[in-house]
Amino acid sequence: MKVNFSWSEPTTNDTFDEYFQPDQLDREKYAQFLTSFLAQQGFDQNRDAEKQKRNYVLNLNAEWGAGKSYFLKRWALTLEEHYPVVYIDAWKQDYSDDPLMTVISSMIKQLRKQAGKDADKNVFKVSRKLVGLLKAATPALARGLTAKYLGIDPLKIMEMADDKAIG
């Protein structure tokens, strides 16, 4: 899918409730490149069946004030017309002691809004309960997977460490 990037004009938006100046550093070309690159890394039917779908993590690193937030917000605004996009600002959305819950709740809220779904529908009330259940079950699930695939039971190791039985 070809996404048209045109950041030469100023814009306002509902998503971030901000005014964006025109891009004077020609960053839209980087957004275009990264969009094409990430879309290519995702699904490709020319690959073997088990490798057609892949995940990719991208890290954007620059010094304070270099324009990372501007770039990511402007990029997100352009992409959300074509793809599901979630933008998480750890400084503004860190209202919980549990960072995982901040990420999950931000994802649910933004994707629900992009899908045009009402937050008060019963289907979403069930998903809130499911998130709580997943959060509670994660330690047991991680322990089981570690024991199965690595042959190590972390709980037993911790108990042995408490008993000072480990040399």
Score class of each variant (00 low, 15 high):
residue 1 M to Q: 11
residue 2 K to T: 12
residue 3 V to A: 00
residue 4 N to M: 10
residue 6 S to F: 14
residue 7 W to F: 07
residue 7 W to S: 00
residue 10 P to S: 13
residue 13 N to I: 04
residue 14 D to H: 08
residue 15 T to V: 12
residue 16 F to S: 00
residue 25 L to W: 09
residue 33 F to V: 03
residue 33 F to A: 07
residue 40 Q to M: 15
residue 43 F to G: 03
residue 45 Q to F: 15
residue 46 N to D: 14
residue 48 D to E: 15
residue 52 Q to S: 08
residue 54 R to N: 14
residue 54 R to E: 13
residue 55 N to F: 13
residue 57 V to G: 08
residue 57 V to M: 11
residue 57 V to P: 03
residue 58 L to G: 00
residue 61 N to H: 13
residue 64 W to L: 12
residue 65 G to T: 05
residue 67 G to Y: 06
residue 70 Y to V: 08
residue 72 L to M: 12
residue 74 R to Y: 05
residue 80 E to F: 03
residue 80 E to A: 07
residue 80 E to Y: 10
residue 87 Y to Q: 04
residue 92 K to S: 10
residue 93 Q to G: 01
residue 94 D to E: 14
residue 96 S to N: 14
residue 96 S to R: 14
residue 99 P to G: 08
residue 103 V to I: 15
residue 103 V to Y: 06
residue 104 I to S: 06
residue 107 M to G: 08
residue 107 M to I: 13
residue 107 M to P: 00
residue 110 Q to D: 06
residue 111 L to F: 03
residue 111 L to C: 02
residue 113 K to T: 13
residue 117 K to H: 12
residue 120 D to A: 04
residue 123 V to N: 10
residue 125 K to I: 08
residue 126 V to M: 09
residue 129 K to W: 05
residue 129 K to F: 05
residue 131 V to W: 00
residue 133 L to C: 03
residue 137 A to Q: 15
residue 138 T to N: 12
residue 138 T to H: 11
residue 143 R to Q: 13
residue 144 G to L: 11
residue 144 G to H: 09
residue 150 L to C: 08
residue 151 G to E: 05
residue 151 G to C: 04
residue 153 D to T: 02
residue 159 E to P: 02
residue 162 D to W: 14
residue 162 D to K: 15
residue 164 K to V: 12
residue 165 A to I: 11
residue 165 A to C: 05
